[in-house]
Write a protein that binds this DNA or RNA. Structure first.
Lengths: 187, 187
DNA sequence: TCCAATTTGTACTAAACGGTACAAATTGGA
DNA sequence: TCCAATTTGTACCGTTTAGTACAAATTGGA
């Protein structure tokens, strides 16, 4: 019977929730310890670089998830229309109608940005570029501008949904994008 | 010759920059003291409630600026088209092509939201409602949805511009909105 | 000029912070 | 079973935190 020793790889999702909830500065080691059930000894064993390394691991984990579930399909799927629709499904599920924030977006706004600038830039650049590629494959001439706008809109919808305490805002945004991005002919 | 005694009313803009740069948690009294040139004695004299009262004063100040320069014109100006165009001018100048973040939006994402939920909600509700009113006056049938989308887009453009380190994203967004929101006939 | 009210700087808490040290416990392969 | 390597909890470090206390300086009206 295999027990469940905690592995470093299990931690990023737990850490992510702490950073999402409290931000980089607000995520104290006490909160992290509580969320993971791990003492400082274990945490510094897994992440000798402390909080900064934990956040870096979380960002890498998020990035990897989006690369596998969102960016790569957008770039590679033969059928651009279903790739784009799939992106919207994945994004809707991931952000839970705006109840869950985008950690990378939040880091872009606060001063965690200075620590993780390149990772943050890379995440959004990949997203925009992958979506633009899919839109171009679908025959849209305004692919780059449309992709940039779509990603902006998703990020803004998260902000607005949370601010208004209304998941409807996010849901309407996703529905609107589905129409706009998968229109048969270009705008 | 009138000297320049520091008044409480002078402080919110200075405090705002500290909160913008470091977030609510990251804005320590040491940083605030440095940014204002005021010691703790003075700060607690003006804001007996400490950091929370300072942040509340900043939010009230921001809210008042938008109410006067953005929301009220959108609601009251006879010419809806120029009111909307004026909003975009004001927003562009205020956020400086995305180099300056929206403090209210940033608070909506981090856990400052729990302290200032109602203020944050009110700010965005006022914005969306005022813009919707102007759009309706301009004869748009999709006014409410369009207003919600426009505010989302602005917020998202701030996130994306900063993440990519590219003010072009914000500028393109404003230009796109100007076209879309002031189109003579509805979409 | 005078004096009460306001404003300010400094010293001071007590708690929380990130991080370190390190011995004890636990683990898994041989 | 044994033992080296890993994992863990706890005590501790110096620093920084928000906030308080309060006397000294400054102010503006009378």
């Amino acid at each position: 019977m295999s027990r469940k020793p905690v592995e470093r790889g299990d931690l990023p999702p737990l850490l992510a929730e702490v950073f999402r909830k409290h931000g980089y500065e607000g995520a104290s080691l006490a909160l992290i310890s509580e969320a993971t059930g791990l003492g400082k000894g274990s945490l510094y064993n897994f992440f000798p670089g402390g909080k900064e390394e934990m956040a870096a691991a979380v960002l890498a984990d998020v990035d990897a998830w989006f690369e596998g579930n969102v960016f790569a399909p957008l770039r590679d799927k033969a059928d651009a229309e279903t790739a784009i629709s799939g992106m919207l499904d994945a994004v809707d599920a991931y952000f839970r109608s705006g109840r869950r924030i985008c950690l990378v977006g939040a880091f872009a706004l606060d001063d965690a940005r200075s620590r993780f600038a390149e990772r943050i830039r890379g995440y959004f650049a990949s997203w925009v570029d992958a979506l633009a590629a899919a839109l171009a494959r679908a025959g849209r001439k305004d692919a780059a501008a449309l992709a940039e706008e779509a990603v902006s809109l998703i990020q803004g919808a998260i902000v607005l949904s949370r601010a208004l305490g209304d998941t409807g805002t996010f849901d309407r945004t996703i529905r609107g994008l589905r129409k706009r991005l998968t229109a048969r002919r270009q705008a």
